[in-house]
């Protein structure tokens, strides 16, 4: 799964402000659902291909992200292909192969693949921390509605830091219980659920202890919520960011126009 994985490189896309990338991704997603014609597909393909080229992320990395949803894609395409009403070309039993079906299936598959590739591109070129920063700054208007955006962003970045630690801890506890004769994959569903208790209880206890200690450590370093904080790495727009906003906006408009015209 490449979704959510960062690929370290130094490219134009890597250097962009995370806010730009977030908004562009949003526009891109809406855009690909606007187009429904071959010419639109060609346009989006060209745009996506140039972005991948600019990102310096190997194409194999992008494709790897698709493996996880392959089965899902095939099933969806299968049903679209054979269940869409229209003029049948061939038909057998309850299935009908129609021109509309072929078109639907193709379009749907392309949209899904492009959706995954586009969003992977965001996470591949943006560190989780930059992403949280981008969300924090980009959503700061939500403060107006009393949403504690900066605290939520802090929570997200702490979660990111502790995920690998907790995974390691899970592995340790699992081994320790296995050494006491526990097995986690025997029996029916209820027995399996029961066998998770010796794993989950210590894991929760440890997670709460960590949370408590971390809260202490943060307080000791004068953390007091988002108010009055300065930023070590403040987000500042550069020339490329403004250009990228323009490019993303144009992409979006062209998609809408193509969607209406064809």
């Amino acid at each position: 799964m490449t979704l959510g994985q960062y690929y370290p490189a130094d490219s134009v896309l890597h250097r962009l402000d995370p806010r730009v990338k977030l908004l562009a991704t949003l526009l891109y997603i809406i855009g690909i659902f606007c187009i429904d014609s071959p010419i639109g597909v060609v346009f989006v393909t060209v745009c996506l291909a140039s972005l991948i080229f600019l990102s310096k992320v190997p194409f194999s990395f992008m494709v790897r992200g698709l493996k996880g949803i392959m089965v899902l894609l095939i099933i969806a395409a299968f049903f679209n292909l054979l269940m869409t009403p229209g003029v049948p070309i061939v038909s057998f039993w309850i299935f009908k192969l129609t021109w509309e079906g072929i078109k639907n299936a193709a379009l749907m598959t392309i949209r899904m693949v492009y959706l995954i590739m586009g969003t992977s591109l965001l996470t591949l070129t943006t560190t989780p921390n930059a992403l949280t920063d981008g969300l924090e700054k980009g959503l700061s208007f939500m403060n107006f509605f009393k949403v504690p955006v900066s605290e939520i962003a802090m929570m997200m970045s702490i979660a990111l830091r502790f995920i690998p630690i907790l995974i390691e801890e899970t592995d340790k506890i699992m081994k320790a219980q296995m050494a006491r004769g526990a097995s986690f994959d025997k029996g029916n569903l209820i027995q399996k659920a029961k066998s998770m208790v010796p794993l989950l209880v210590p894991l929760f206890v440890s997670a709460f202890r960590r949370a408590y200690e971390l809260a202490n450590a943060m307080e000791a370093r004068c953390y007091n919520g988002g108010e009055g904080r300065t930023k070590m790495k403040p987000l500042r727009y550069k020339r490329n960011d403004y250009i990228s906003y323009g490019v993303a906006g144009s992409f979006f408009l062209i998609c809408i126009v193509l969607g209406i015209m064809f």
């Binding site: 081994k175 010796p198 209880v201």
Partner: peptide, 27 residues
């Protein structure tokens, strides 16, 4: 695994029983 017992580092992190006795009975 019952013949060769293993006490991991910080073994108290594996305790889960509601009582000490229950926990010791797990193995």
């Amino acid at each position: 695994r019952t013949e060769v017992g293993m006490v991991f580092q910080y073994p108290e992190n594996q305790l889960f029983g509601t009582t000490v006795y229950e926990d010791v009975c797990f193995g």
